[in-house]
């Protein structure tokens, strides 16, 4: 019976971990996505300084985002986010028109990570 109870306990813990991971990844992604949205908004307003400040904030938060999501999501899903994040500030500083597209891609990639936790993906 010990094994049965142990298995039951492990299953409960795994279920809790799965539910917890969904909430943790989603909340991190949404927070990060909001930051990316603020970069996009600043670029749309032509406010380069605000866009750069928002980019700096995102770079600072990257470690936390990577730590939470990296436990549950494949590294290959996170690597492109870091690449976009590194490419964005120089583009904004140079006033390149592609920076808006880069910020949009960044949001899209963060959304991709969030969709990893969607239950409908089971099917």
């Amino acid at each position: 019976m010990t094994r049965v109870w142990l298995s039951f306990g492990i299953l409960l813990a795994l279920t809790a971990l799965c539910i917890g991971s969904v909430f943790a990844v989603r909340s991190e992604c949404r927070r990060y996505e909001a930051e990316a949205a603020s970069v996009t908004a600043a670029l749309a307003d032509g406010d380069t300084a605000a866009a750069l400040a928002a980019c700096d904030g995102m770079a600072g938060d990257w470690r936390r985002f990577r730590t939470v999501c990296g436990i549950f999501v494949k590294g290959s899903k996170l690597a492109p986010i870091r690449e976009e994040l590194e490419a964005l500030p120089p583009m904004i500083e140079a006033g390149m028109p592609e920076s808006a597209a880069c910020a949009a891609r960044l949001r899209y990639r963060i959304g991709n990570v969030e969709s990893e936790t969607a239950v409908f993906r089971c099917f």
């Binding site: 094994r3 049965v4 971990l17 549950f72 590294g75």
Partner: peptide, 22 residues
């Protein structure tokens, strides 16, 4: 594959074994 988080390997193994015991 180090790209796969370790948890994604641990979780199914434990879940399968627990399902089997139950």
């Amino acid at each position: 594959d180090t790209d796969i988080p370790l948890l994604q390997g641990i979780l199914p193994v434990l879940a399968l074994v627990c399902f089997e015991v139950l």
